[in-house]
Computed example of a mutant assay.
Amino acid sequence: MRQSSAVFRMIAPLIAVGVLMVGCGPSPAPNSAPSLSPMPVPAQTAASDKPLRVAPAPSALTPPVGSLYKNPTNNRNELVLADVRHTAVIIGDSQAMPAGSWPQQGVAALGYKLHVAGMGGTGYVAGNGKTGNYIDALQRGDWVLPYGEPPLIVIEGGGNDATQHATDAQITSNADRLLAALKTRYPGSRLAMIGTLARGINNGGGRRTEVDALLGRIAAKHGVPFVSAGDWLTRYDAIGDLQDGVHLRPAGHAKIGVVLAQELTALGLAARPDSAPAAK
């Protein structure tokens, strides 16, 4: 017994050292990743130690409402609306610009919110000295269209083209360009055109009524619904509602707005329920 105890005392330290060596295992190689719960390491470029830029989360890419967004698909600034899916766009001249104008009243009556673009004194060919005609102003970004896809885009005008003596060829060329640009930019939106408010060919409508008829032919060529307004001042007894021979007083806007709403509804352009399929 005494001899066995002496032997145990001699080998015990060797056993302890072996246990420690087995428990610890080999030391990890330099720069190797830990086997458990690795800490994230920022990505690095091959040429430098600076971390790469990490793309933001998808939610961070959504532009805020009311901001201008540079759309990468067309390289143009577009306005972010709160509800573009229920918003109609009106492109027009001074007939459409004032709040409560007959184009605005007529389109809004169909169940749409509104986004109005364009400027007074302009048209398919006509410019106002500060901005160009419809297609040039659109291409230059003088006014902006919505981001997304509105259900309806309505183009109104022609009066200033008549005043500035634009030719049929000039109006046709620019209208063709404008319609092509809008169809490309908003392939799922419905388009419509409203002609030139006038007295009618037999009541002093003159060139304004002629432009209205021309726009009707252009719209037909492109398969775009068209509302002729070339004799409305006479037909709907609105001459007395004019304030300057061309523009209407509020009562006239209300009167003609009702007519426009009826015409657009008859063309099937009223706002669709959310469940209805989209169509051009």
Rank of each mutant, 00 (worst) to 15 (best):
G111T: 10
G159T: 15
K113F: 02
A47F: 07
T234W: 14
Q95G: 07
V211F: 03
N203L: 04
W143F: 14
R85L: 07
L81A: 01
T163I: 08
L260D: 13
I135T: 03
P98D: 03
M193G: 10
G159H: 13
P103E: 01
K255A: 09
P103M: 01
S228W: 15
I239F: 11
R185Y: 05
G205R: 05
R207M: 04
P151N: 09
G141A: 00
H165Y: 11
V224I: 13
L145V: 04
R53N: 05
H115L: 08
A229G: 12
M10V: 12
D93Q: 13
Q44S: 00
D83H: 10
G204M: 09
L269A: 14
A166F: 08
Q262Y: 13
Q139L: 00
D237Y: 12
G195C: 11
G157N: 12
M1A: 15
A96G: 08
G206F: 00
G195S: 12
A276L: 13
L145P: 06
W102D: 03
P56W: 02
N128L: 12
A220S: 08
P38T: 04
G223C: 09
V116M: 12
G206T: 04
P146A: 06
L14W: 12
F226E: 04
V116E: 08
G129M: 02
R53T: 06
G157R: 07
A33G: 04
T45C: 01
A213K: 03
Q170A: 11
V144I: 00
G188D: 10
P273D: 11
G106T: 01
K280Q: 13
K50Q: 02
A29V: 02
D136G: 01
I239N: 15
H115V: 03
I155Y: 12
D274H: 09
A238M: 15
V89H: 06
Q105H: 00
V211I: 14
R140D: 02
K221P: 03
Q262W: 10
A29N: 03
A276M: 12
G111D: 07
S94I: 09
K130R: 11
N71I: 04
G268P: 11
A16R: 01
T62A: 10
S4G: 14
D83S: 09
K70E: 04
Q95I: 06
S5H: 12
P58S: 06
G118Y: 15
V224D: 08
I155E: 14
K255F: 06
A271Y: 09
W143V: 06
P250F: 05
T172F: 11
V125F: 10
V107N: 02
I15V: 14
R76P: 07
D136Q: 05
L152G: 14
G257H: 02
V89D: 06
L20V: 05
G158S: 13
N74S: 01
L214P: 01
R208F: 03
A175V: 07
A6N: 09
A220E: 05
N71A: 08
S275T: 10
G106E: 01
S27C: 04
L178Y: 00
A220F: 01
Q243R: 07
Y112H: 05
A220T: 07
G204C: 11
I194M: 13
L242W: 08
L52Q: 02
I194R: 11
G92L: 07
Y69N: 03
D168I: 14
K183P: 04
I256K: 03
G23C: 01
E263H: 15
G129P: 05
G157L: 09
C24D: 01
